[in-house]
Simulated assay, not measured.
Amino acid sequence: MKQIKLQPLNQDVEVATESTLLSVLLKQEMNVLQACGGQGRCATCHVYVRDGGDALSPKSEQEIMTLSFITSSKANSRLACQARVWQDGIVIEVPQGMYIGSIGELKNLIGKRAQQNLIHPLTGEVLVEEGKLILRSALEKMAEIDSSFSTDLSQILLPPEKSTVASK
Protein backbone atom coordinates (compact mmCIF):
# COMPACT_ATOMS: atom_id res chain seq x y z
CA MET A 1 0.00 0.00 0.00
CA LYS A 2 1.14 3.52 -0.83
CA GLN A 3 0.26 6.87 0.75
CA ILE A 4 -0.91 9.87 -1.30
CA LYS A 5 -2.40 13.24 -0.35
CA LEU A 6 -5.43 14.79 -2.06
CA GLN A 7 -5.69 18.58 -2.22
CA PRO A 8 -7.61 20.78 -1.60
CA LEU A 9 -9.22 18.20 0.70
CA ASN A 10 -5.95 17.86 2.67
CA GLN A 11 -6.76 14.17 2.92
CA ASP A 12 -4.23 11.31 3.16
CA VAL A 13 -5.31 8.18 1.31
CA GLU A 14 -3.82 4.71 1.29
CA VAL A 15 -3.85 3.01 -2.13
CA ALA A 16 -2.59 -0.20 -3.65
CA THR A 17 0.52 -0.06 -5.82
CA GLU A 18 -0.37 0.23 -9.54
CA SER A 19 -3.75 1.85 -8.75
CA THR A 20 -4.68 4.70 -11.06
CA LEU A 21 -5.23 8.13 -9.56
CA LEU A 22 -8.73 7.95 -11.06
CA SER A 23 -9.58 4.89 -8.96
CA VAL A 24 -8.36 6.81 -5.90
CA LEU A 25 -10.59 9.80 -6.72
CA LEU A 26 -13.62 7.59 -7.31
CA LYS A 27 -13.00 5.65 -4.09
CA GLN A 28 -13.03 9.00 -2.25
CA GLU A 29 -16.42 9.70 -3.90
CA MET A 30 -15.11 12.69 -5.84
CA ASN A 31 -17.31 13.62 -8.79
CA VAL A 32 -15.16 12.83 -11.84
CA LEU A 33 -16.95 12.95 -15.21
CA GLN A 34 -14.73 10.39 -17.04
CA ALA A 35 -16.20 11.37 -20.40
CA CYS A 36 -13.96 8.93 -22.34
CA GLY A 37 -14.35 6.06 -19.88
CA GLY A 38 -10.75 6.21 -18.68
CA GLN A 39 -9.12 5.94 -22.11
CA GLY A 40 -6.98 9.08 -21.78
CA ARG A 41 -8.82 10.86 -24.58
CA CYS A 42 -10.51 13.67 -22.62
CA ALA A 43 -9.56 16.02 -19.82
CA THR A 44 -12.31 15.28 -17.34
CA CYS A 45 -9.96 13.54 -14.89
CA HIS A 46 -7.19 16.16 -15.20
CA VAL A 47 -5.21 16.70 -11.98
CA TYR A 48 -2.04 18.54 -10.95
CA VAL A 49 0.79 16.63 -9.27
CA ARG A 50 2.10 19.03 -6.61
CA ASP A 51 4.76 16.63 -5.33
CA GLY A 52 6.04 13.13 -6.07
CA GLY A 53 5.57 13.11 -9.84
CA ASP A 54 8.43 10.63 -10.17
CA ALA A 55 6.44 8.20 -7.96
CA LEU A 56 3.87 7.84 -10.77
CA SER A 57 4.04 5.89 -14.01
CA PRO A 58 5.43 7.95 -16.93
CA LYS A 59 3.09 9.73 -19.35
CA SER A 60 2.05 7.72 -22.40
CA GLU A 61 1.95 9.22 -25.89
CA GLN A 62 -1.86 9.30 -25.67
CA GLU A 63 -1.75 11.22 -22.38
CA ILE A 64 0.80 13.70 -23.73
CA MET A 65 -1.36 14.34 -26.80
CA THR A 66 -4.54 14.80 -24.75
CA LEU A 67 -2.81 17.14 -22.29
CA SER A 68 -1.59 19.26 -25.21
CA PHE A 69 -5.23 20.22 -25.94
CA ILE A 70 -6.04 21.30 -22.37
CA THR A 71 -5.76 25.05 -21.94
CA SER A 72 -5.22 24.67 -18.20
CA SER A 73 -2.46 22.07 -18.65
CA LYS A 74 0.87 22.67 -16.92
CA ALA A 75 4.12 20.71 -16.68
CA ASN A 76 2.74 18.92 -13.60
CA SER A 77 -0.59 17.99 -15.23
CA ARG A 78 -1.66 14.36 -15.41
CA LEU A 79 -4.75 12.47 -16.48
CA ALA A 80 -5.84 10.55 -13.38
CA CYS A 81 -6.99 7.61 -15.53
CA GLN A 82 -3.49 7.15 -16.94
CA ALA A 83 -1.26 7.85 -13.91
CA ARG A 84 -0.47 4.76 -11.83
CA VAL A 85 0.85 4.98 -8.27
CA TRP A 86 4.28 3.37 -7.94
CA GLN A 87 5.58 4.87 -4.69
CA ASP A 88 4.66 6.99 -1.65
CA GLY A 89 4.86 10.76 -1.40
CA ILE A 90 2.44 11.84 -4.13
CA VAL A 91 0.43 15.02 -3.58
CA ILE A 92 -2.27 15.72 -6.16
CA GLU A 93 -4.56 18.69 -6.56
CA VAL A 94 -7.91 18.32 -8.25
CA PRO A 95 -8.96 21.41 -10.27
CA GLN A 96 -11.89 23.12 -8.63
CA GLY A 97 -15.04 23.17 -10.70
CA MET A 98 -17.62 21.05 -12.46
CA TYR A 99 -17.10 19.60 -15.90
CA ILE A 100 -20.01 20.21 -18.25
CA GLY A 101 -20.78 17.07 -20.25
CA SER A 102 -22.71 18.66 -23.11
CA ILE A 103 -24.21 21.85 -24.50
CA GLY A 104 -27.62 20.49 -23.43
CA GLU A 105 -26.43 20.20 -19.83
CA LEU A 106 -25.16 23.79 -19.94
CA LYS A 107 -28.40 24.98 -21.57
CA ASN A 108 -30.35 23.66 -18.55
CA LEU A 109 -28.29 25.92 -16.28
CA ILE A 110 -28.96 29.20 -18.17
CA GLY A 111 -30.19 31.95 -15.85
CA LYS A 112 -28.71 30.39 -12.69
CA ARG A 113 -25.56 31.32 -10.81
CA ALA A 114 -22.63 28.94 -11.10
CA GLN A 115 -22.08 27.26 -7.74
CA GLN A 116 -18.53 26.46 -8.87
CA ASN A 117 -16.45 27.00 -12.01
CA LEU A 118 -18.07 25.33 -15.02
CA ILE A 119 -15.34 23.63 -17.04
CA HIS A 120 -15.27 22.45 -20.68
CA PRO A 121 -14.88 18.64 -20.68
CA LEU A 122 -12.19 18.42 -23.34
CA THR A 123 -10.01 21.49 -22.93
CA GLY A 124 -10.37 22.25 -19.22
CA GLU A 125 -11.20 25.86 -20.05
CA VAL A 126 -13.47 27.65 -17.58
CA LEU A 127 -16.76 28.45 -19.34
CA VAL A 128 -18.38 30.28 -16.40
CA GLU A 129 -16.63 31.34 -13.20
CA GLU A 130 -18.04 30.49 -9.79
CA GLY A 131 -20.68 32.96 -8.64
CA LYS A 132 -21.30 34.37 -12.13
CA LEU A 133 -24.65 34.24 -13.90
CA ILE A 134 -24.79 31.54 -16.58
CA LEU A 135 -25.72 33.24 -19.86
CA ARG A 136 -26.32 32.11 -23.44
CA SER A 137 -22.85 33.41 -24.29
CA ALA A 138 -21.48 30.39 -22.37
CA LEU A 139 -23.27 28.13 -24.90
CA GLU A 140 -21.62 30.03 -27.76
CA LYS A 141 -18.24 29.75 -26.06
CA MET A 142 -18.68 25.98 -25.58
CA ALA A 143 -19.75 25.51 -29.21
CA GLU A 144 -16.76 27.57 -30.39
CA ILE A 145 -14.35 25.49 -28.28
CA ASP A 146 -15.95 22.25 -29.54
CA SER A 147 -15.56 23.37 -33.15
CA SER A 148 -11.99 24.51 -32.71
CA PHE A 149 -11.06 21.34 -30.81
CA SER A 150 -12.60 19.13 -33.52
CA THR A 151 -10.69 20.99 -36.23
CA ASP A 152 -7.39 20.74 -34.35
CA LEU A 153 -7.93 17.06 -33.59
CA SER A 154 -8.82 16.16 -37.17
CA GLN A 155 -5.63 17.83 -38.42
CA ILE A 156 -3.58 15.68 -36.06
CA LEU A 157 -5.41 12.38 -36.58
CA LEU A 158 -6.01 12.47 -40.32
CA PRO A 159 -3.03 11.67 -42.53
CA PRO A 160 -1.95 14.51 -44.81
CA GLU A 161 -3.49 14.36 -48.25
CA LYS A 162 -1.15 12.99 -50.86
CA SER A 163 -0.87 15.20 -53.84
CA THR A 164 -1.69 13.47 -57.06
CA VAL A 165 0.16 14.30 -60.20
CA ALA A 166 -1.62 13.61 -63.45
CA SER A 167 0.62 11.59 -65.73
CA LYS A 168 0.59 12.16 -69.45
Rank of each mutant, 00 (worst) to 15 (best):
K59D: 04
S102N: 05
L79Q: 10
T164A: 10
S60N: 06
Q87P: 00
V49R: 09
Y48I: 04
S102Y: 00
T123P: 08
Q7Y: 02
E105P: 01
A16H: 07
E161V: 06
G124R: 06
L127A: 07
V32C: 10
V128I: 07
G97Q: 13
R50F: 01
L33V: 03
L139V: 10
G52T: 03
S57I: 07
P8C: 09
L118Y: 03
Q116A: 14
M30W: 00
K162Y: 00
A138D: 03
T123V: 10
M30G: 00
S102M: 04
L118C: 08
L22G: 03
A114W: 06
M65A: 14
V126C: 10
R41N: 07
N108G: 10
D12R: 12
E29A: 13
G97A: 13
L106N: 03
L139F: 02
G53P: 01
L79C: 11
Q82G: 07
Q7M: 15
L25K: 02
S73K: 04
E63K: 09
E161G: 04
Q115W: 03
A166G: 00
Q96H: 07
S57K: 12
E140M: 09
F69E: 10
L133H: 08
M30A: 03
A35C: 07
S72C: 09
V32S: 05
G37K: 10
A43C: 15
S148Q: 15
L56Q: 02
S163V: 07
V13I: 15
K107P: 00
Y48E: 11
S150R: 15
E93A: 13
S77L: 04
V32K: 06
A138Q: 04
L109A: 11
K5M: 14
I145E: 12
R78N: 08
E125N: 10
R84D: 05
V13W: 02
R113E: 13
N117L: 09
N108P: 00
G104D: 11
C81W: 03
K2V: 08
V15N: 07
Y99I: 02
V94N: 04
V85I: 15
L127F: 03
L26V: 09
D54Q: 13
C45P: 04
E140D: 12
A43F: 02
A35L: 15
I103H: 01
A138M: 04
D54H: 07
Y99E: 08
I119D: 10
S73N: 11
D12F: 06
K27Q: 14
T44M: 11
P58G: 05
I90W: 02
F69T: 12
L6I: 15
Y99Q: 08
V128K: 09
I90Q: 07
S163C: 03
C36M: 11
V13C: 08
M98K: 15
E130K: 15
I70Y: 00
L79S: 10
L22D: 05
F149Y: 15
G101M: 05
L67F: 00
Q96P: 02
L133Y: 02
